[in-house]
């Protein structure tokens, strides 16, 4: 079941990116009479690469900053900022990604920059929230033991808290990446190069074949990354001994 899912996802994604012509017969019925069925204004491969690049450019700083903030507010020195941080995260969640994207345009103009800024800002919240939840979920008795065994605060953080929070942190990154992939699609309305271009082109030129092509491809990539992160989370859980070991 899982293997089949992987095969289909990788097959469809790879096929659409590398051999788009193969899908011509399938998409032809949806294309307007005489119009093109396969998007040809840019190669899907290059659009995919720039789509993923937008996401990566935003997610790396997002992850680093959100994690640092979560660590900061869970230390004694930062405890006073915790209520404020939670309020901020809570308010931030009511900001739709489209709003963040649209408001970045007057600041940064059109293109990749406002998109990356929006993805970066919106990516912070899920990672911060999950990292916070993960760090706060470490049982008090475990923290106390670490301290009582003579670990320095830094050792407790690196050897106990972070490994225990890791699955939840990864879960946060996974949520952020899924949102970022979706928002990057909308980024093509502000002229960032992404797969959204294909869908928007389909919508504006009344060509459902484009919409299906772009939609299926972005959907597959999103599910693929989602599943890949799921695998990573499983591994993290197993490595940290919290998942019952599979019977041999």
């Amino acid at each position: 079941m899982t293997a089949l899912r992987w095969i289909i996802l990788i097959g469809v994604t790879g096929g659409l990116i590398l051999f788009p012509a193969l899908f011509e017969p399938l998409l032809r019925p949806f294309a307007p009479a005489g119009g093109p069925a396969i998007y040809d204004r840019a190669s899907l491969a290059s659009l995919t690469v720039s789509h993923l690049a937008l996401v990566a450019l935003a997610m790396i700083p997002s992850t680093l900053i959100a994690l640092s903030l979560a660590i900061l507010v869970t230390r004694p020195a930062g405890a006073e900022f915790l209520p404020m941080a939670r309020v901020l995260a809570n308010i931030g969640q009511t900001f739709p990604p489209v709003a963040v994207l649209a408001l970045s345009v007057p600041l940064l103009g059109f293109g990749a920059r406002p998109t990356v800024l929006a993805l970066f800002l919106y990516g912070l919240l899920p990672i911060f929230e999950n990292a916070l939840a993960g760090l706060r979920a470490v049982p008090g008795s475990v923290l106390l033991s670490g301290k009582a065994m003579g670990m320095t605060p830094r050792q407790v953080l690196a050897q106990v808290e972070m490994p225990l929070a890791l699955p939840l942190i990864l879960e946060g990154i996974r949520i952020s990446i899924v949102i970022a992939l979706s928002t990057a699609t909308i980024g093509s309305t502000v002229a960032a190069r992404s797969l959204g271009e294909v869908i928007i082109a389909g919508l504006t030129s009344n060509n459902p074949a484009y919409v299906i092509q772009g939609g299926v491809l972005t959907g597959c990539i999103a599910v693929l990354l989602y599943d890949a992160f799921g695998l990573l989370i499983e591994i993290a859980k197993r490595l940290t001994g919290r998942e019952p070991q599979q019977a041999a």
Binding site: S141, V142, L143, K147, P163
Partner: peptide
């Protein structure tokens, strides 16, 4: 170093789950 030289056992043990 004080704590490394003193054994400590608590209720619930606080074993590192990972």
């Amino acid at each position: 170093s004080l704590r490394q030289g003193i054994g400590y056992v608590i209720q619930g043990y606080g074993l590192f789950p990972h």
